[in-house]
Design a protein around this nucleic acid. Structure first.
Lengths: 240, 240
DNA sequence: CCGTCGATGCGAACACTGTACGCATGGCGG
DNA sequence: CCGCCATGCGTACAGTGTTCGCATCGACGG
């Protein structure tokens, strides 16, 4: 197709309406912000860097987004759109609830900045995805037969948020070190054992942890254990 | 005592070794940082403002603290020193655990920045207070008879952290509005109800929430409910 | 008593941040 | 064809964390 390499100014050379990005839009901004956040964390996202990624001037973003905080809220809501939820009429409610909890966890770990943003902004202003998420979750717990579905949800979500938050923070620290999780643990071990030298139970716990091999598996098991605990407690609230 | 108001340069005027602050020290820096954080939140704390509060130059702080992140870690550990824990030989383990959970919650709400910092930094490097806290907690759960005390702790703490995080974030948003919690809710209600217009269960939930009067009491009850759930689940893991 | 040394404080500077303002531009409705 | 309005953006400002090199000062050894 290309016969010449020299750019000859002509009507043909001037590409007609083929912008590098389909211009700027709130959706594209949020999308790119999320990929940047996923890659390098909260503090690596600046309006200027985001803008250059979008082939735009720094302040152009403010035509579509009022403020950086608002952008964060939009990103959070966007991520809530990713979280799968079981249908309200699932036959096995425990399996379904487990699925929902695990889906939350995996998205929270895929976007490790989520937890810290939640801790700062909270969920006061609910965007469309968050609203839909809450609705479906409530419908599910109500259908299961919980007399106080909202209470049950708050309990379960609190557990999942708490566990995912610490886990995400941990994984972030690991990622910043540039090492693999196992290597990082190995390097951390001496310090931890020395710090817990005077504490019998802690030392035991660290010794036991040192024996384990696959850290990811350990985290999975920890999450599963707590989840079972919470579900057991909830099951007692089911009528009959 | 004061006979003259004019400052006459003399040996007597020159106060001998009476510094406005007992010079600068890591402890005093951390302490002042915490009060600033408590008062105005994470983003209101800057090294310069902190320094002026201590009658010091901005960069003097770096003689005692390597970096702002390290300062944050120190602040977190300091706060963990505030959290009360029941003795390991408490007769009623549920009452004791409830006490511990509530102590955590109240400190987390007294320092609303704690949760968001935990979400960013995690608890990788454990300071002395955190280590002691972990030790005593483990000792307690082991004494109660849990076969896997660390697992039990992780579950309970995850729930408490999750609930406190959302609660702290909410209270922060309320505080930023300058209104009372009840007023803020009242002003938020129309938006929330409109946002949940298409969602039957959510609308119900908001309607029910609107009927309640004392928001703090509602939060207390919510926390207590989930805590009972978790403790019920844990009780099933106790032998016999 | 003097000299030196280490610890401590700090002013200036750098690279960045979020954001307000005002001007250019260009496509569209009248 | 005119005018308008939405969109983009260059500049600027106040502030941030942190580095560097210099000043100061108390303690201590000779």
């Amino acid at each position: 197709m290309a016969a010449r390499t020299n750019p000859i100014p002509s009507v043909w050379a001037r590409q007609q309406r083929e912008p590098d990005q389909p211009s700027l839009s709130r959706a594209s901004i949020v999308r790119e912000a999320i990929t940047m956040l996923d890659a390098d964390g909260t503090e690596a996202l600046s309006m200027r860097k985001l803008a250059t990624r979008l082939n735009a001037g720094a302040t152009s973003l403010y035509r579509h987004v009022a403020t950086k905080d608002e952008l964060m809220e939009l990103a959070v809501d966007e991520v809530f759109g990713e979280m799968a939820l079981p249908p309200a009429d699932s036959p096995d409610w425990r399996a379904a609830a487990t699925e929902a909890a695990e889906a939350f966890r995996t998205t929270a770990l895929r976007h490790p900045w989520l937890s810290s943003v939640l801790g700062q902004a909270g969920l006061a202003y609910l965007g469309p995805n968050l609203a839909s998420y809450g609705e479906r979750l409530t419908a599910f717990f109500a259908a299961v037969g919980f007399p106080e579905p909202v209470r049950a949800i708050d309990t379960l979500i609190s557990y999942v948020v708490g566990m995912s938050t610490t886990e995400a923070a941990w994984l972030t620290t690991v990622a910043r070190s540039g090492e693999s999780e196992a290597d990082f643990i190995a390097r951390l071990m001496p310090a931890a054992q020395q710090a817990s030298a005077d504490y019998a139970h802690l030392a035991d716990a660290y010794a036991a942890a040192a024996a384990l091999t696959d850290p990811a598996e350990v985290r999975n098991a920890k999450f599963a254990y707590g989840l079972e605990v919470v579900l057991d407690g909830l099951a007692l609230r089911l009528p009959r």
